[in-house]
Amino acid sequence: MAEDERFLPAQAPIDAVLDGGFRFGEMSHQGSLIGLPGRTQAWTPKGTAFEISAQDLAPVLEMAEVVDILLIGTGADIAVLPQSTLDTLRGAGLACEVSATRAAVRTYNVLLSEDRRVAAALMALT
């Protein structure tokens, strides 16, 4: 099974940010992660945080009708996304907040606990 095909069939809060991965849903995952309504799955962005593209965020864009806000965790530090990526997200009706991964996880967990329509694309800490 390809890495991006592995998933948990639920949107799970993140229990811990680990070096190189995450703990959630009574399991751990090495690598980046994306949380969507109805699933939590491996995420493999093609470049650095500064290079995150609309193609990298295709799983979120495919669910834009059921997501109001996208949180993007860019690793240990905050990064500025390409304007073209931000324009695509905005065009799909998604509000986007970019922060360091640990901060994005905290916000994601709060919004999930409030039953908000949220997605998160979280780069692993390296």
Results as ranks from 00 to 15, higher is better:
2 A>V: 06
3 E>W: 14
5 E>M: 13
5 E>C: 04
6 R>Y: 10
6 R>H: 12
10 A>K: 10
13 P>C: 07
13 P>R: 09
14 I>K: 01
16 A>V: 07
20 G>Y: 03
24 F>L: 15
26 E>Y: 13
28 S>I: 10
29 H>P: 00
32 S>D: 11
33 L>A: 05
36 L>Q: 01
36 L>T: 02
38 G>R: 10
46 K>I: 07
47 G>Y: 11
49 A>M: 06
54 A>Y: 02
55 Q>V: 14
56 D>I: 04
59 P>K: 08
59 P>W: 05
60 V>L: 04
61 L>F: 11
61 L>V: 08
62 E>L: 13
65 E>G: 05
66 V>A: 11
66 V>C: 12
67 V>S: 02
67 V>N: 01
68 D>N: 15
70 L>S: 01
70 L>W: 00
71 L>F: 05
72 I>M: 04
73 G>N: 06
78 I>M: 15
84 S>W: 04
85 T>L: 11
88 T>Q: 15
89 L>D: 01
92 A>Q: 04
92 A>E: 03
93 G>F: 03
94 L>V: 08
97 E>T: 12
101 T>F: 02
103 A>F: 06
103 A>Q: 12
105 V>Q: 02
105 V>G: 01
106 R>C: 07
110 V>W: 05
111 L>S: 02
113 S>L: 06
114 E>I: 07
119 A>D: 05
121 A>H: 02
123 M>A: 06
